[in-house]
Design a protein around this nucleic acid. Sequence first.
RNA 1: GGCGCCGUGGCCAAGUGGCUAAGGCAUCGGAUUGCAAAUCCGACAUCCCCGGUUCGAAUCCGGGCGGCGCCUCCA
Length: 602
Amino acid sequence: MDTVSLSEPHASLRIYNTLSKRKEPFRTVQPGKVGIYLCGPTVYDKAHIGHMVGPVIFDCIKRYLTYCGYEVTWVVNITDVDDKLIAKARQRDISMLEVAQENIADYQENLASLGVDQINHFPRATQCMDEIIGLIHSLVEQSFAYASDGDVYFDVTKDTGYGKLSNRSVSDLQGEGGTTVGRKQNAADFALWKGAKPDEPSWESPWGKGRPGWHIECSAMSRRLLGKTFDIHGGGLDLVFPHHENEIAQSECCHSRPMATYWAHNGLLRSSSQTGKVGGRSKPGSKLNKTSMADSAANATATEGGKMSRSKGAGGLAELIARQGGERIRFFLLRTHYRSTVQFNEPAIEDAGIGLESFYRLLKRYQRITGNDFYDLVVPSTRTEGASAASDDPTLQAASSCRDKFLAAMDDDFNTGGAIGELFELAKLINKFCDESGLDQEKGDPVERHQDTAALGKLRQLLTIWKELAGILGIFCQKPTATNATSDRFEPLMQLIVALRATARAKKDFATADTIRESLTSVGITLEDRTGGSEWTAGDANSIEGLMQLLIALRATARANKDFTTADTIRNRLEELGIMLEDRPSGTEWVQNADCGMRIAE
RNA sequence: GGCGCCGUGGCCAAGUGGCUAAGGCAUCGGAUUGCAAAUCCGACAUCCCCGGUUCGAAUCCGGGCGGCGCCUCCA
């Protein structure tokens, strides 16, 4: 086999290679360019969370390589022809194409939800038939493959390197057979082309009508989009054998060149019992828990333990994302090194979400102090650009050290878990800086405000570093869109409640103030008193009813205390929002005008 | 049976030969707060067991115990 000369190694980046079973310095086929091929799904059914592990880590890998100055092309293939697709199409009485189309849409929506947006090409097997047939033809011509009764098989005995990826020998594999044993010359031979059975989707070929074997599409599509030799080939650990072993056999025998320099395999997800606790406090009166319970039937597979797979009924990724949010799931997956097995369960995702929330509070703090939006910060897009000049400021020095450690972790085979540790460290550093510089305090004195200018500049620098690093992981890149359908009502109601509470606090009526806060807590809203006023966390769809009940109760108390000013304030403010209160003997009910008197409450 | 992976505090999880074993969650103290929340400070592990190599090991080697993956479709 010909050798391919590679670029000089990157100064610090190392990647684990399944082929050599060790970490290697990173070199590329073409200087400054990287080609990545990741094996995507067979789209016979909806995606499950296991399908997201590879895309999420490779999304980070591409971001990181780009950040390191490489021009990266990333391909994720889609297998849209296979036995299971055919079976599914028959079962549903639609075409194979339709089955594929549906599940591709599902897959891509899920990717988008997890922030995976770096993929350049999604080639589909059915759209690459010419390349596939050409490749098989070449293998037959070179005697690496043989036609047999409408099928074409790859002859593993002709490939001297066969088994090098998965560390097996051809003789080890000769015990196997399978249903096609009669047509094969060796038990370990595998199909490149399968002759069509009646009523199966098929394509014309020199060997008659048929369809490609599973492995050949990847050899064909990677060659078309990335060349005969490209840099990184990825996929789940379960694809090492036979899929990737066979890809190597096909491509390398055909081209007499290495197929890929690095073979990177992500660990598999395991579902584990939901009863197994993974830290994480449950919020008081949390609606999260309620939802988890309600959906526990849908997650039956997650309670069984063992490997995730569609054949075991795993699925419902879209529902999981709806429940947990894509960012949490992404963050959850990145907490663990990509080659490790991840125990997957919802409490663990919620646990990851708690950490994420502390980051959001930091961003909010930045906004509160500076009046600027964190998402407007412009960050360095490359590693060299981000390298800060030496500073004698201890805080900036410490931040720079966090950045160095973060990058060192990423350099070490994309250790996102270690990198996230540094993100937490940096966040703590920034919070501490805010605490110590007293930036949260309101300054009336112009002299003090002037002193703050330097501190504010420093704060901006610190957040910029934080955003730069978070961006490598693909988190906190863009402002989350407020999706709360109730937010139109929610904000004004909260403002009213908080104003009522502020009045109570001003009058040292702490009993009322505390009642209000506790009531909000039980509806899932946390109130935080700041120097400039109270802040609150977003509620969910059910919060509105809770807020209304709280207001009704507050008004009732005020009326009982003959505090008609407060009672009327509540009613009048609500009226301005188009909400009418109706006092009935059975209690007060509320009606939303906008909905033509349709009662929302019970 | 063949090939391979893993076992770090209550839980999750970095670290793979040498400063005080990252970080997150949880817990317990303290600062702060009207009280909280948030934030900060502090406390909390000698790394499954045994043996070996070494001046020195969680980190290397051997053995054991335990968990898991692939060898059939699978990310």
